[in-house]
Structures are given as C-alpha cells and as structure tokens.
Design a protein around this nucleic acid. Structure first.
Lengths: 119, 119
DNA sequence: CTGAATCCTCTGCGATACTG
DNA sequence: CAGTATCGCAGAGGATTCAG
C-alpha cells in the first residue's frame, strides 16, 4: 500500500530532518555563518577584525550575533586587559566541529557561481 | 609588522569568506535547507509531501521557496499529467552536490542538542 | 492537488548617535 | 576599541481564501 510505504520512509528520515532544522535555527540570520567563518579561518579574531572580514555588517549586528553564538556555545569571548581593551573570539571545540561544513559551503559557493553565471 | 601580517591573512581568506556568503545567500530564510533536505532524502518528492515533511511551513511559503530554488537551479519541477495533477520536485546535479552538507548539518544538529542540553 | 492572491503582523536589520 | 541605545522600515512569513 502506497501510504504505508510513505509512512515508512517518513519515519526513516524525520529525525534527520528535525536535526537539520535544529542546525539551521542556530545558524539563522544573515551573518552567523560568515562570522563563524572569520573566526574559524583565523583561529582567534578580534571584534574589529571580524567587523572588517564580514562585508557589510554593522557593529550593532555583530555584537548581537556574537552574543547569540556565545550562548549557543559555539564561541568563547575573552577580554584582553590592554589599553584600550581588546576582545578576542575563538571557536569552542563544538564550534570547531563546524569547520568541515564551513569549508564545504565555501567550495559550494564557488561552484554555485559557476553554475549560475554559466561559467 | 602586525598590520602586514593581518593584511596577508586577510587576502588569503577573503575569497573563501565571500564564497561562504554566496552560499548562505542562496540558502537564506527559514525553510530552504529543510525543503532541500526533504527532496534530498527522498530523491523525488511531491508538493504535499514536502508540505508534510517540513514542520510548520505554509503552502504559501513552500510555493515561494520552491520557486526560488528552481531559479537557482537547485531543483527541477515536473508536472505529472494525472487527475488531479501532481507535481514532482527533484534535485538537479548541482542540487545534489549539497547532499554532503545536508548530511553534515543533520549530524551536527544532533551533536548540538547534546552540547546544549548537557547530554 | 498545487498553487496564487490578499491581508496583516512581526522582526531582522540598517542608520545613527552615544558610552566606558 | 568594543560595544549599547534608539528609531524606523522593508520584507519575511502566518492565516485565510480563491482558482485551475
């Protein structure tokens, strides 16, 4: 019976689908992945450096997004006692587990441009 | 000199960073990746099936997002001449190249839940 | 069944200015 | 330098209805 077949497959993949949604909820918005990329590529990165890396982002947004990433335990914020103060951001172990995805997204972005522009 | 060093690395990674942004521009919004996951996991999928797979999406949104995905050459839409008509969606070759990323996101989503809930 | 058309709400995000 | 505080709007997205 067709519906049974569908239900079978449905159950088979609904868990993965929910997991994908969970991931995208954390990485939502226009900036999160780009910010993570910046920190990921440079290992440690300062606020103003990320501000430059991520094209077009405002300090307001950067501040807000960094806070969310910290809450989600993807990055660690540490204040350096300099004058004036500087703040370093780095990936947690958990954040580093996104490295493969980020690199894949980079590769895919380049491939996508080729596909859309017709090479 | 520190700034030179920074500029050097800056140039080294700005290309990847732009590519990541390109990818995320295509996959933006609340639903795109989930929709792609549905089609990806089942190879071919009908409108109403995707509507069920993606929890919470409205037909209005699904319709709109599918259109964008088609414009970006990630999926192909084909109308089956049945009564009433059914519409199948499947990934293009280019769309299929997202499979690894989708699977990684699924794995990461599960891991993330463990990290946040403290296991 | 697969959408398109309306209407309406809410919020993501930009611009700008200000603080320690 | 690294943020916070306001203000304002376009547009994402929800609910509902209509159409082929």
């Amino acid at each position: 019976m067709k519906t049974c077949e569908n239900n079978y497959f449905q159950q088979k993949h609904s868990k993965e689908m929910r997991a994908v949604q969970d991931s995208m909820d954390v990485l939502n918005g226009k900036w999160k992945v780009a910010i993570l990329s910046s920190i990921c590529y440079y290992n440690k990165r300062r606020f103003s450096e990320i501000l430059n890396d991520v094209e077009g982002i405002s300090n307001r947004m950067l501040s807000k997004e960094l806070k969310e990433l910290e809450v989600n335990k993807l990055i660690i914020r540490s204040v350096m006692d300099t004058q004036p103060i500087t703040v370093m951001y780095e990936l947690t172990k958990h954040g580093k587990s996104l490295k493969n995805i980020i690199e894949s997204l980079s590769d895919w972005g380049i491939a996508h441009r080729r596909v859309i522009t017709g090479k």
